[in-house]
Each structure stands twice: as C-alpha cells, then as structure tokens.
Design a protein around this nucleic acid. Structure first.
Lengths: 331, 331
DNA sequence: ATGAAAGCGCTAACAC
DNA sequence: GTGTTAGCGCTTTCAT
C-alpha cells in the first residue's frame, strides 16, 4: 500500500507538505495542493490510521463493552454508539463480556492494548471497587446504565426501581391486586432494582407481596415461558402480569397462547421494553420504556467531553416512560 | 501508559531484550526473564498493538461488514466471527453498510485505513464488477453468502434456491397446492433466488404460479404483517404460506392471530430461518435452516488461510436443512 | 544471551 | 509556503 512518502515523491514535494495538506493545516500554493491530491488519487493513497495514531498519541478508537452481540438490546446500543462515533470520526472497537467478570476484564485489556482513547462499559460483572480502581488509570471511560459511588461524573443512569413501580402502579390503578412478576436473574443488580419497584408499588397500595407470585427468569424468552408455566401451575389467580424484560414477556405470551388463556381479557400484561419488541408481538404489550438508545448516545457525548476535557452539560440520568398499548384491562 | 523503554530501564536491560521476552523469541537467562516480567507487572505494562502493527506491517485486525448491528441475524454473524478471531488472537473491526453501496464502500475504506490484515464482506450492494476490482488490491477478503464469478475461492455460499424449493416441496408433499409466498425485497439477489425456488417447486408439481400469491416484503416483521393482510384480502384461498424470513413470518402470524385464523389448522406455515426465531414464536414454525453461524465461522477460517497463504480444504458451500416443528398439517 | 541501530508511516516543532 | 529533523513504541537484523 502506498505511503505518504510515495505520494510526496510523485508530487515532487516533502512528506510534511503532504501531511499538512491531508490535515488541512496551514496554507499552501494551490498548484502544490493540486499536485499532491492528484498523486494521492493516482496511488489510491489512504493515510495509515496506525502510523497516525503512533505519531499523535491518539488512536481515534473508542471501545464498547456489551454482554453479547446477539440480542436486539445490545445491537441497539452498538448501533447508536457507532452512529455517534461516526459523527466524531472515531473508530469503534467492540467486545463481549459474556456474562463474566473475567470476560469484561479481558475486553478492557483489549481496549488498553489497542490504546483506545476511551471506552464505554455496559458492565454487569465488575465490582464497584474494581471500577473505582480502573478510574485511577489515565484512560477515560463511561459507565452505561450503572451508578457507582464516587464515579458519578462517568455514569449514565436509569431509575429501574421507579420504572418497575410505574408499571405496577398502572396495573393497580386499573384495579388489579393479584399481580405476578417475572424478574430478571437475581444475580444482577438491575433485576433487584426492578423487583424492588414491583414490591414497593404493592406495599404502597397495601397489597401483600406473595412470594409465589414472583418468579425469577434470566431475561431470555424461554425463561419467560417457564416462569409463566410456574405461575399457572401455582394455582394462584393472578389478573395481571409484570415482566422485567420484553423477551420474557414474549415467552410468557407463548405459554398463555398454548393454554388458550385469553389475552388481555383474562390476564393483563405490562413489561419493560427497550427495543419495541412489545410493539412487535401479539397482543401488543403496554410497557415502561428503558431508553437505551438515548443513553448510549449520551454515553458517547460524555466520553468525548472527557477525552477533550470539555465542560459539558449533558443529561446523564434518564427517566422511564409509560407506553400504553391496550394490553391492560380493568379488573 | 508505560512503554517498552520504561520496562527496559526498570529491568536494567535493553528494549530489544524486553521485546524478545514478550514475544518468546530466542533464549535468555532465567533471571533476566524474571526481572523483565517483574518490571512489566510493576508498571502494569501492555504492549501497544499500534506500535507493534507499525513495526510488523500487520495490524492483527480483521474487518467485518454487516448491513446492521441490530437484528439477530447480524448479531449472530458478529458473534461467530468474534469467537473465531479470538481463537486466532485477532482484533475485530465491524462496520455497517446501511443498505447502500456507498455505505459498504465507506466500510471498506475504513478497513483499509486501519490496515486490516483482511476482511469479511456480507455485501449486498456492491456489484460483482466492483468486487472483482477490489480483489485486484493486495488486502485479502472473503465474501460471506455471495457467489461472484471469478472470485469463487473467496466465496462462502448457500443455495437459497434449493432451500426455498425444499420448503415448498415439503408443503406440496403434505398435499398443499394453494401456497402463498412472502418474498424478500426483489432489489436483492437472495430474494430472487428464494422466490425462484418457490416457483420451481410449484412448476415441477404442475401447479400454476399465481402472481397474486406472491407478495413482496422487506425481510422485516411489519412487512410480513402487511403481506399477510394483502394475501388475506385478495380472497385467494391459500392453505399454506411460505415466508422468506423469520421476521416476516412473525409479522404474518401476528396478523393471522388478530384475524382469529387458526394456526396451523387453517393455514400451514413454513419459513426460512437462521437464528431459531421460528422456534421462539407461537406456533413454532417449521423451517429451512440457513446456517449463517457455520458460514461465518468458515469465513474466518478461509480468510486466515488467505492471509497466511496456507492451503486449505475448507467447505465453502453450505446446504439447507429442513427443521420440522408441526406447523404444517396435511391438506 | 544481549545490545546497537535502523526503520515502520506518520506528525509536529522549528528553520528558512 | 515548504523542507528538515526528531520522535511516537515497537520489531528486527546485525554485531558482539
């Protein structure tokens, strides 16, 4: 591949002149510029991002840690981040954490090895302490959907508890009192937060929290199916169901369809959602929206401002929003 | 961040010695090795992939072009490619083509700018000619799910026509003759191939191909919904439906549920699938499997062998597989 | 077994 | 306005 030297030789100028023209720095005679541009075109020259990184001590790369590439939720995150980075002319380096602390560490190692200018972590397995330790190192990073004490300025947050509460409150307002809950895996912080929201809503309405009404899933579709099955077999007569993820709601609906339970006549439904899957299933399911897209976008902006040491006034805390789609009937 | 020089100084040796130890080349006194390793640990040293790239003229990066990050199909591709690249200790650079030739070109430009050692293209918009021209440049690439004349050695292929034919043949074997088809966008080559398979199956069974039975979608869920609606309103009495994507089948099912059409009693269903969505919906839908995962994995292997100029015996053509799930009743 | 020196492709401070 | 020079962090011959 042609190098800057080849271009310089062909154009009959010095490398540094070519460099300046590429980067639009300083002034140059228009015929010099023309010669250089022609030489670049002729050689199909592309400046090496690698050499440039080494020379400028900035790789223009940004890391993004997600749990998996599969799953619409993470795809959405990657898409938003890529779009924002494109606007800033930065390269995206993605890595999967694979649901383990070691996987996440490995991803961060990769970001460091590649000398990313900064990175965004949707970390679910590193401890607060480990993240605080990481913050002592010079490379900036932002935490997407996580709040770590002492690292507030790097956090993009969402109130999961309030979101769950809003969803369940809505059910209660429609007269429901026997409300089931399919939670996420309790090994995960956000699952707890959401479950707490469910419980708080019930307690505030003087409704007992019956343990058998809460079934633990893993956010995946099949776990929703089995959770629904478990609730069904328990014999408890629920009139409404709250799911902590859209995939689990999808699975639950599959089960209830198989059992010929009329939805939403016999069972009202409400779910968390991020990627409008609730809109895509039958029946369409009312939801509380977890705005991962905007949060991801904001994460990039925040990271850029950290890299450039720019002051900023970015909104870092996001609020849930109820999206009603007639899957809740009055009880 | 600590550099190799810092390590060398701290360990009291020369940079080149550190380099050799990192790369395990040559022999060294065990106490030298120990000193160096200790210095590396103390400084939390990570060799710069960038500097290394410049020195070795190999970036260890591999590009992957997909259409979008969202969508389970592409997520699956990225996941498989990443997994394979991890095994080879290569970095992954992803890019989205966004359904335009210019988007795909831009992605390839990025791969070149980053001096990727090679890249994998799931290209849908670049012409055969453009790809052949690209093949003249030195950077190796592999075409995933595409066959370009003259570039066979770089192609990982799948017989879409045969796949569609197998699906429709199965319906015919079960006694169906009035079979609808929701195709992909006819602007795309694979859509045509699949539609041809549908037509060939019918013709071989002496069934007329009624134009109104074929509705064009865009592979997305909602287009399946509207296609189903269109078929429904056409008044044609179909007993079976073949969808060219799982998402469209999902949309169609949503429509038929709304119309209280008993599935599969009143309408047998069969669909293309890649990521087992057919297994995830209600009712579960029989399918022809398009093994994108294995194909993606093979793409990496093929690319690696091209980069390393290794002879190889990799299977590059993949066959469809019928996956029956009882969504087809006898007619 | 280890050090010295050149070079990968580029940028940036300085000189003219 | 353009050339000179040094240097980014590493690898790789070539000495010793």
């Amino acid at each position: 591949m042609a190098s800057i030297k080849d271009v310089a030789t062909l154009a009959g100028v010095h490398r540094s002149t070519v460099s300046r023209i590429i980067n639009g720095e300083g002034a140059f005679r228009s015929d010099t510029k023309r010669k250089v541009e022609q030489a670049m075109a002729e050689l199909n020259y592309r400046p090496s991002a690698i050499a440039r990184s080494l020379a400028t001590a900035s790789s223009n790369m940004t890391g993004l840690l997600v749990t998996y590439y599969t799953g619409g939720f993470f795809g959405q995150m990657m898409d938003q981040v890529q779009t924002e980075l494109d606007r800033h002319n930065k390269f995206l380096i993605t890595a999967q954490g694979h649901h383990s602390a070691e996987g996440e560490r490995e991803a961060i190692r990769r970001f460091h090895t590649l000398r990313c200018d900064g990175y965004i972590l949707n970390s679910r397995h590193l401890s607060d302490d480990e993240l605080r330790a990481l913050a002592l190192e010079p490379t900036p990073f932002v935490l997407l959907d996580r709040l770590v004490e002492g690292l507030e300025a790097r956090c993009i947050t969402f109130d999961h508890t309030l979101a769950a509460k809003m969803a369940v409150n809505y059910l209660i307002e429609q007269g429901h009192r026997d409300i089931g809950c399919i939670s996420g895996p309790l090994s995960r912080a956000s699952s707890h937060l959401r479950l707490n929201g469910y419980k708080e809503a019930l307690l505030q309405a003087d409704i007992d929290v019956h343990p058998a009404l809460c079934v633990e899933g893993d956010y995946g579709r099949m776990s929703g199916y089995f959770a629904a099955q478990q609730l069904h077999r328990s014999g408890l007569e629920l009139t409404a169901l709250f799911s902590c993820s859209e995939e689990m709601m999808q699975g639950a609906i599959q089960f209830f369809h198989e059992q010929n339970v009329a939805l939403p006549e016999k069972l009202s439904l409400i779910s968390f959602d991020s990627i409008d899957l609730c809109d895509a299933i039958y029946p369409q399911v009312s939801s509380v929206h977890f705005p991962i897209s905007q949060m991801a976008q904001t994460a990039v902006e925040l990271l850029m401002s950290q890299i450039q040491h720019t002051d900023n006034n970015i909104m870092r805390h996001f609020m849930p929003e109820l999206r009603l789609r007639n899957s809740v009937t009055e009880a």
